[in-house]
Structures are given as C-alpha cells and as structure tokens.
Write a protein that binds this DNA or RNA. Structure first.
Lengths: 118, 118
DNA sequence: ATAACGTGTCGATAATTCCCGACATATGGA
DNA sequence: TCCATATGTCGGGAATTATCGACACGTTAT
C-alpha cells in the first residue's frame, strides 16, 4: 500500500458518520446493506450518506453492487488488512521485537475463544 | 477505546506530514527524536511541525519529554494497538471467522523471519 | 546580564471539508 | 407510458484545517 492510499483510507475513516457506516458494514459482512438502509439506520439524509459512501468507496474501504433498484454496500476487509500492515510496517520491518508483542496482543484479543477489544 | 478517540487518532494520521512524522518516530523507537530534528528531516518549518506534533500528542499517538532545551518525541505504540483493535472490533466480536484469517495474515507478514508488508 | 538556541503560541490567509436542498438518473410496477 | 422508489450529482454557504511569519518563553553558555 502506498502512502497516498493510506492517507485516503485514514481520512475516510476519520469522520463520525463514515466511521459508523463502515463499522455497520463490517457487522453486516458478508451480506452488506443497501445505501438507503445505511442512511436510515444512522439517521442521515440520503444524499449526505451517498457522498460519504462515495468517499469510502474511493478509498477502497467499501464496494457497491447494484441489486435491482438498490446499491448494496459491503466492507472490504482486505483493505483494512493492508492499512494495518502499513501502520505496522516500520516497526515490524525494522524492529520486529517492538512489533511482535503488539501483534501477539491483537491476536489474543481477537481469538474466537475470547470476547475481545474490551 | 472510544469512538471519539479513534476519530482523533485517524484524523491525526490522515495528513501527509503527520503520518510521515509518526512513521519516522516509529522507526526511532525507543530513542525518539527532538522536535527540531523531525522538522529538519521532513523539511517542514519548525512552527508548522510544532502544530502537527501537538495534534499527534493530543491524539495520544506520540508523547514528549523535555531534555535540556529539546523536546524529545516518541511514538506511542500502545495507542496504535488500541486503534487496530478498535477497527477490528466488530468483526472479531461478532464474526471471529471473518477476523481470524485477517489476524493470521498480519501476524505472518510481521513475523521476525520475514520481511513484511510487501 | 546578554545572547543564542530550541520550541511553542498567535493571528491571518488559503485551502479543504461538511452539509443539505434541489435536481437528475435509473429501475420496477401499474 | 406514467409514477413511485432508490440512489447519485450539483451548487454554495458554513465550518474546519493547513500553513507560516512574527513573536514569546524557557534553557544554556559566555
């Protein structure tokens, strides 16, 4: 992932409505949600939400697919993975000992046997 | 981590100079760098950099400590960990099967035996 | 005390982002 | 065809953010 792509993704998530929309779509994986339903659930005008969804799409964090009249949006977890790797890149390339405990902690917190991220 | 804290951290990183400064500090762990040196290396006026460092500090991504005339800035990897957990929270709480491969991939990419994040 | 150095703060301008009403486009049903 | 539904686009005003010169503060050396 290039620096510019990371900036785009970070900026896309650094806005309350967009962060909420993205997290909602993560919860809905792998089914996704239509644009209007997202707007309704977050209580945001449809055109405002449309703009936000376009920004998330340009950043690669979500994708859309037509389904009859609706646009079904889905979270792109692959890009989250790339973004996380980008943020960790400098310590795990240069200083694995700094990064290892961090990774281990994340893995532990997110293992299926635990409720995580408390 | 609260939503507001995540937004602050994401917004802090969603700016080229600040992202570069943060990554520079990650590379310099655990020694850190004085403010002026960061400004010099990234070729940014000292007062502009001072503002950016203040934003990173408020977001908790870096910390500063006086050392004679200099302010030594250091990356706070703990907050990166929290931010990553926050972003993964919804899939690993609700759908561990979605999150597990993602985590495994990150762990593999960042293991000491590999150069990662290609 | 005076000067030099390293940083931070203030203020003003420029640039960007956010929001939403109004309008446009696309699809499906009557 | 005509209408309702679902979504996207445009325009412009409000709010936020970025930048940097000028100045202030604290620290060290002479």
């Amino acid at each position: 992932m290039e620096k510019k792509d990371a900036i785009d993704a970070l900026a896309a998530l650094a806005q309350p409505t967009r962060l909420e929309a993205f997290r909602l779509l993560v919860k809905q994986e792998p089914d996704g949600l239509p644009a209007g339903e997202i707007a309704r659930r977050l209580d945001v005008p449809h055109n405002t939400m449309s703009t936000h969804l376009a920004i998330l799409t340009r950043a690669g964090l979500v994708s859309a697919q037509r389904h009859s009249r609706s646009m079904i949006y889905r979270a792109e977890l692959g890009l989250v993975r790339q973004l996380v790797l980008f943020m960790l890149k400098d310590c795990c390339n240069g200083q694995p000992d700094l990064c290892a405990p961090l990774i281990e902690d994340i893995m532990t917190s997110c293992s299926p046997s635990r409720s995580c991220c408390g």
